[in-house]
Simulated assay, not measured.
Amino acid sequence: MQKSGGSILASGNISTLSDFDYITAGFLLIDGEWATDHLLHVTAGKIKSVLSRDRVPEDAKIRDLGSGFLVPGFFDIQVNGGGGILLNDAPTMSGLEKVARAHLPFGTTSMLPTLITDEFDIMRRFAGAYCDIQSAYPLSIKGLHFEGPYLNPVKKGVHNERFIRNFEDKFLDLLDEFGLDHVLITLAPEKVSSDFIQALVQAGVIVAAGHTDATYEQTMDAVNAGLTGFTHLYNAMPPMLSRAPGVIGAAFQAPSSYCSIIADGDHVHPAVLKNAIASKTPDHTILITDAMPCVGSKNPDFILQGEKITVKQGRCTTSEGVLAGSAISMEDAVMRSINLLGQTLEDSVKMASETPARFMGLDHKIGLLKPDRQADLVFMDQAGQVQEVLTTF
């Protein structure tokens, strides 16, 4: 098993909540603070109430997890693969299920399966598989993330330039055809029109900038059109300069926007991420994994659209040394937020659960230990290491 050096296999136990009415631990994260002597009353897969121990019925069935920290399950909004599966190669119900189950032991009880830039037919199969699994057994899958194909080839990273293209109305048709909800799309603002961004937002899509070479002015025009996110801030975008603030400068100037970060210590220097969090605050910073098939798999290496990706010391790279996603889990992201970025456990958890849920408009369902939220829970130690994952699926 590897832990903070780049997760390959998980140690967290998975259990269901069906046998217990009340769940407690040494500390519960309630409204951003640690509460002691409190319990969660769980019924029908949801948190019915949060109450102090003296209000619990004497005959209540209680499970006490012990002297650790009970927090909301993590929500990873950028998962390219896991368990040996790359979703571009398996845009099917089976592929979605295997990836979701691979990430569950790491505390990821909610996720957005992510499709890297690909042919439209693959995008369509991906959308269909999501609809099928939602009607069968939704597990942890809360929506979809299309990373591309409307990107800037100059900042393509490992995305296949052959599949990068200009905006097309048939993406809007795809949304209508499958009735997709909670969709996130990463695009280059300079490669699409403001009208297209407005149309996406009107269709309920969350729009983020990424793999872009946009200027500050182009990005702010996109923000005014409805763009609210920035995908893996600093990566695959121009640097912020004194006379050319660019995409990053726009992210800092748009106070209501959200920035996702890959806190693996390789994609961005920790000092830079510390400054980003100080600017955006944990209320608008989201921890993501950008996870590849190696997470939750015994085989670290994999093939990405015909190119071999090697995983060494937690880094996924091409033969030319280009980073290709990451080998970290959400457990790693939280632990590194604490150890590398100096964030508190409670703020690290917020960036892994509440903040992404709010960004995707799902904070009324997940991301908080509050009444009417799903009872998807993570029990962890003070270092952020997952001890147990408690779910209803």
Score class of each variant (00 low, 15 high):
388 E>F: 12
81 G>K: 01
339 N>V: 01
107 G>S: 00
249 G>P: 09
290 D>L: 07
300 P>M: 08
145 H>P: 04
5 G>L: 12
213 D>I: 11
93 M>Y: 12
81 G>W: 09
192 V>Q: 01
382 Q>D: 15
25 A>I: 00
159 H>P: 08
389 V>K: 09
55 R>A: 12
237 M>T: 07
333 A>V: 07
210 G>Q: 08
340 L>C: 01
331 E>L: 02
349 V>C: 10
237 M>V: 10
14 I>S: 10
366 I>R: 03
109 T>I: 06
31 D>L: 05
124 R>P: 11
164 I>E: 01
61 K>V: 02
187 L>W: 10
200 L>Y: 03
144 L>Y: 07
177 E>N: 11
357 A>V: 04
209 A>P: 04
307 E>A: 11
191 K>L: 14
375 A>G: 14
48 K>M: 12
11 S>P: 03
112 L>N: 07
134 Q>C: 13
193 S>L: 00
138 P>L: 04
168 E>P: 04
196 F>Y: 15
163 F>H: 12
247 V>T: 07
41 H>R: 01
341 L>M: 01
222 A>L: 04
169 D>G: 00
204 G>W: 11
234 Y>H: 10
368 L>V: 12
114 T>S: 13
365 K>D: 15
183 V>P: 08
15 S>D: 11
67 S>H: 12
110 S>E: 05
334 V>I: 06
205 V>K: 03
14 I>H: 06
235 N>E: 06
27 F>N: 03
221 D>C: 05
386 V>M: 00
319 S>D: 15
282 P>E: 00
235 N>Y: 00
5 G>Y: 08
155 K>R: 15
302 F>R: 10
45 G>M: 03
133 I>V: 15
198 Q>N: 13
117 T>F: 00
312 K>P: 13
121 D>Y: 14
279 S>L: 15
150 Y>S: 09
282 P>T: 08
50 V>G: 13
256 S>M: 02
205 V>Q: 00
292 M>W: 06
29 L>M: 14
8 I>G: 05
301 D>W: 08
174 L>Y: 09
165 R>K: 14
292 M>V: 11
327 A>I: 05
94 S>R: 08
272 V>K: 04
149 P>N: 01
93 M>D: 08
119 E>G: 07
24 T>F: 04
313 Q>Y: 01
291 A>Y: 02
332 D>A: 02
323 L>A: 13
360 M>S: 13
317 T>N: 15
348 S>Q: 09
245 P>N: 08
95 G>V: 05
86 L>A: 04
138 P>V: 01
61 K>P: 03
291 A>L: 05
377 L>F: 11
356 P>H: 06
53 R>C: 10
309 I>D: 03
231 T>S: 03
174 L>R: 00
153 P>R: 09
351 M>T: 02
200 L>E: 05
349 V>S: 07
370 K>W: 15
98 K>P: 03
284 H>Q: 08
26 G>C: 09
75 F>M: 11
367 G>F: 09
317 T>G: 05
216 Y>Q: 10
155 K>W: 15
325 G>V: 07
